[in-house]
Design a protein around this nucleic acid. Structure first.
Lengths: 342, 342
DNA sequence: GTTAGCACTCTAAAGCCATGAGTGCTAACC
DNA sequence: GGTTAGCACTCATGGCTTTAGAGTGCTAAC
């Protein structure tokens, strides 16, 4: 890629900055006036024509100003922009909303995070709930509720708690039940939920059958309670924020966007792709694998619980996005969220 | 209210039916043609003028057909309409989606119900999750997780399970802890969560202090875990469905509507108002106390868990709604949901 | 290499007209 | 008296033209 000279950089920068602010194509005269570049509009016009030829800018129609192309945004993000520091008040708003009550459950913390993230960015936020199956088994209990029912409680190291009401097989006495539970706890301790496969369960089942001759039911519950929880939830915030952007003033686009927000599994896929990457990721327009958001930019970062990467935070806005600001916010929030959840 | 003669009823019925179907104002000629009423358009025009004067119909502008007014819809719902029976396939779709897996948690069942409800109606559905505080305390357990943390599990009669991680005060030995828990279970059994007030808790606290001198922390947990859960969740389905209605083709309305959907507490208030009523309730336009939905109709009904009314199901659509059909669906779903959750 | 000037392009908003659906009224009809 | 045919009138809608304004590209002068 041909490097841009200093002047072209400044002009590209000016176009991006201007377009981010106003959402209107930026003309040469505007640039000449606003940023003290010491050049006439005609000169700037020439440079802009060059930039367009190189693919950094484009024109919606002949007699309009220029807008950054995807390549232009990419160059801006990679070379021209410096991520902003958060203003004091925003930082403390984020801190506040994650720390109200130390006793809060994971889910509540995440819901709050999604809310504050969409609020401060004015875009739509999405946070992937912690990946249950990547966390490790800590213990399992069965509480008898009455003669016919029991409550299974399953605890993992990331503080994930899963419970499920099950039918207790009548032939299982409390003592036997306790034995089964103890055995399972021994065997499963320290494994990730991922590792508790059907084959492992079958193995344990055979092993146990040899010792006592009951408990079909006890296993079904284990399988169920582990397996079914595979779908991780995605929490959204400010789904309507994105509608305030001028690029979404036609009803069809709005519908397509909102329809996307209802497809939790698709959102999950989007976020999950960036789970293992380090730092803040910026995906501009068609860099995004999912078609529905190829007119948008997605900024994501992964959070950790007890040093284990378990989920992803994202902000979705138009490609005409305030990159510097949003990157700063996402970086900050992801750190705080990791602290809060650990 | 002056009673309508037979002919006026038929015409009102025809206008409502026509407008529900097409969303276009209904003209006199259309009625003369479609419903074999044996009258010329001129006669129908006269009758329509009467109906307009009485307030049952209105005209968007002089040269348009008539549309039902709110009063017109109300008359239609009260006197002209007969709620429809569900087609076999819809009924079985509902049945199916509530029964996939008997072991499912309450939340999953409700999410499914919201989904199937919005799908079959093509409107937006909202279901208020079961009211935790109206259900009665069954038992409480504390599971030690490690030296510093414990898990409180609280079970109610409607199958509601609430858990919370707490810090265990170091001075509390396992045996003592067990004693506290046993004592609390005795005292609280059979009370509704509502009845577990702060003053009752304080009383118990004083009582226990006399017997042993520990456990500040144990009480904090109880208070927290009971109190904080007051906000009941509302589950939505098909939030974008309502955008397909022609009355929502302007972006501002869409935004206001969607903003409403993000305010869970407001939705809760809306649904909670109809919690204690019997049967299916139809609220048309401004009959609705909440301003944001005064251009809509809300059809609600309450569901029961073990014969206790604990939540409400609702369908939100334009006032131009297929009342007969939707009322039938809501009635059916609420019955099935009550069965499923009991 | 830079800039002033000018003709040209193209969108968005405003105004205009034709169309057609539907009405209200009147006079004739049964 | 109720019903109907006929007709003039109203008004939203969509297509068309016009205008204004912003911005460009090019050329010629600096």
């Amino acid at each position: 890629m041909a490097a841009l000279n200093e002047r072209k950089k400044r002009i590209l920068q000016a176009v991006v900055a201007g377009y981010i602010q106003t959402a209107d194509p930026v003309g040469s005269r505007t640039i000449a006036r606003t940023c003290r570049i010491g050049l006439s509009s005609a000169t700037i016009r020439n440079e802009m024509a060059d930039l367009e030829e190189m693919g950094y800018l484009s024109q919606p129609h002949t007699s309009a100003g220029r807008i950054p192309s995807q390549k232009g945004y990419r160059y801006y993000v990679d070379n021209l922009m410096t991520p902003g520091n958060l203003p004091e008040e925003e930082a403390s708003a984020i801190n506040h909303s994650l720390n109200i009550n130390k006793m809060r459950e994971i889910e509540q913390i995440i819901i709050n995070a999604a809310r504050v993230l969409s609020y401060t960015t004015s875009y739509t936020s999405m946070i992937m709930g912690p990946q249950y199956k990547k966390s490790t088994f800590r213990q399992m209990r069965i509480l008898p509720l009455d003669e016919k029912k029991g409550l299974v409680v399953l605890v993992t190291d990331s503080g994930f708690i899963k419970n499920k009401v099950i039918d207790l097989h009548q032939s299982l006495s409390p003592v036997e039940l306790q034995q089964v539970v103890t055995y399972l706890n021994q065997k499963l301790f320290g494994l990730t939920i991922d590792q508790v496969t059907t084959s492992l369960i079958n193995e344990l089942k055979r092993d146990l059958f040899r010792r006592m001759e009951i408990l079909e039911q006890a296993f079904i519950l284990l399988e169920e309670s582990l397996k079914e929880e595979q779908q991780v939830r995605v929490f959204l915030g400010g789904t309507t924020n994105i509608l305030n952007q001028p690029e979404f003033k036609n009803v069809d686009k709005i519908k397509r966007m909102l329809a996307l927000f209802e497809q939790e599994s698709l959102l999950f896929n989007i976020l999950e792709k960036n789970l293992s990457a380090e730092g803040v990721i910026v995906q501009i327009g068609s860099e995004n694998p999912v078609e529905e958001i190829q007119e948008c930019t997605l900024i994501t970062a992964a959070y950790k619980i007890n040093n284990k990467t378990l989920g992803t935070v994202g902000v979705l806005g138009p490609t005409r996005m305030n990159y510097a600001r949003i990157i700063g916010i996402v970086r900050f929030l992801v750190d705080k969220l990791s602290d809060s959840l650990s």
